[in-house]
Design a protein around this nucleic acid. Sequence first.
DNA 1: CAAACATTTGAGCAAACGTTCAAGTGTATA
DNA 2: TATACACTTGAACGTTTGCTCAAATGTTTG
Lengths: 123, 123
Amino acid sequence: MKNKTEAPVCGVTYIDEERVKKIEEDFPAGDLISDASEILKVLGDPTRLRIVLALAREELCVCDLSVIAQVSVSAVSHQLRLLRGQRLVKFQKKGKMVYYSLADKHINSIVDMALEHADELQK
Amino acid sequence: MKNKTEAPVCGVTYIDEERVKKIEEDFPAGDLISDASEILKVLGDPTRLRIVLALAREELCVCDLSVIAQVSVSAVSHQLRLLRGQRLVKFQKKGKMVYYSLADKHINSIVDMALEHADELQK
DNA sequence: CAAACATTTGAGCAAACGTTCAAGTGTATA
DNA sequence: TATACACTTGAACGTTTGCTCAAATGTTTG
């Protein structure tokens, strides 16, 4: 145990100043953490995860995505807007159809690892 | 383009029945998707991501975590409960102190990839 | 041009979320 | 044994989320 001091910011008594400083020294910037958590949050919804998993396999239109994601076309469209916002998906228009696909391979790895971890937790 | 049929479930007209069937054939089970999205959701919050990033570096008590996560001790404690719920962290009591650490290496890889992806998006 | 269709959009609403605050538990120490 | 301390917990709160429904957009086709 180290010395106990008053924290300057939040009034909490914190315990190991050195340890905290050491960690804060090489810590990702606030913006980076915000962006990364935003990406994870977007993937952290069953409907959107279904959409992403489907698109990881094949380019698909909104209509077909709604069947796979098991929600209305409108709901899918709303979710696709979020996914576009995070640049996780891209799209391509063919007449009145809109075909979506994954924008980045990174997404695949993140999603695969989450699935793998979930699978292990199920014993 | 293939034949257009009425979808049996939601009344949506869907476009490419074959394509949908092919994807649904080897699709992760519903439970797996739920669990995986739950994990991603838990990581998809800046406070919790800060906590996880800190614990990826070193075992820490709640007090120090509250400094690093930049929220009250109570808020950290609530978030730690969620992280425990998903078995992302474990803890060890030493007297009145409680030291938390990461429960699984998988988490590191997921978080690192999200950071990497976020970093690339920042051009 | 009119009707059909794929998709998007905005409002509205119930449920879930993240924080604060106050109170509670349990351990150490004077 | 009383006080201090580390942490947890529950209620309350304002905010965000994900859906539905109805209306709008834009494209194709009769």
